[in-house]
Simulated scan of single mutants.
Amino acid sequence: MSISPSLGALLRYALNERRGLLVPGAGNALAARVIESLGFEAVYLSGAGLTNNYYALPDLGFISLSDIAQHTAAVRDAITLPLIVDADTGFGNALNVRQTVRTLERAGANAIQLEDQVMPKKCGHFAGKAVIEQGEMLGKIKAAVDARHSDDFLIIARTDARAIHGLDDALARAAAFAEAGADVTFVEAPTDLDELRRIAADLPCPQIVNVVIGGKTPSVPSAKFAEMGFGMVLYANAALQGAVRGMTNALAELRGKGELLEEPTLVATFEERQRLVQKSLFDQLEGRYAA
Rank of each mutant, 00 (worst) to 15 (best):
A143Q: 02
L114T: 07
A178D: 06
F126Q: 13
A87F: 03
A161D: 08
L81K: 14
L138Y: 01
E188W: 05
V187Y: 06
R102E: 15
E136N: 06
P120A: 07
A94Y: 14
I164G: 02
E105K: 08
G92S: 06
V97S: 14
G90M: 11
F177M: 05
R162F: 07
D152W: 08
E136S: 15
K140E: 09
F177V: 06
A147L: 10
A94I: 07
I164L: 14
L167R: 09
G135E: 15
A130E: 15
P190K: 07
R173Q: 02
A130C: 04
A174Y: 01
T103W: 10
E133T: 09
Q117I: 06
K122R: 15
R148P: 07
F126S: 10
A157I: 06
V97G: 14
R106Y: 11
Q99C: 08
D88I: 02
V187S: 03
L138P: 03
D160L: 01
H149C: 02
A87C: 04
K122T: 12
T159L: 02
F153L: 09
D152T: 13
D152L: 03
A172W: 01
V101E: 00
K122F: 12
I164S: 03
D77E: 15
R106Q: 15
D160S: 05
F126A: 12
D116Q: 09
L138G: 03
D146T: 13
D116M: 06
F91M: 09
A78V: 08
L81I: 12
K129C: 08
H165M: 07
L193Y: 13
E136G: 06
D160A: 05
D77H: 14
C123E: 08
G135N: 15
I155M: 01
F186G: 07
A147T: 13
L193I: 15
L171H: 04
A143N: 00
R148Y: 06
G135H: 12
G166V: 08
Q113M: 14
L83P: 10
T185G: 02
G181F: 10
A163K: 14
K121I: 07
K129I: 09
N93F: 01
L171P: 03
D88E: 15
A180I: 00
A147G: 11
D86P: 09
F91Y: 15
A143S: 14
T89E: 07
I84W: 09
G90Y: 12
D194F: 04
D194G: 10
I155Y: 00
A94H: 14
P190A: 06
T100G: 12
G166Q: 12
E105A: 08
G108Q: 14
K142Y: 00
E115S: 02
F177Y: 15
H125Y: 04
D77S: 15
A180C: 01
F177A: 03
K142S: 10
A189M: 04
N110F: 00
N93C: 05
T100P: 13
A176Y: 00
L138T: 04
L114Y: 08
D146V: 05
A163M: 10
L154W: 05
A107N: 12
R76Q: 06
P82G: 05
V145S: 01
L171V: 03
E105T: 11
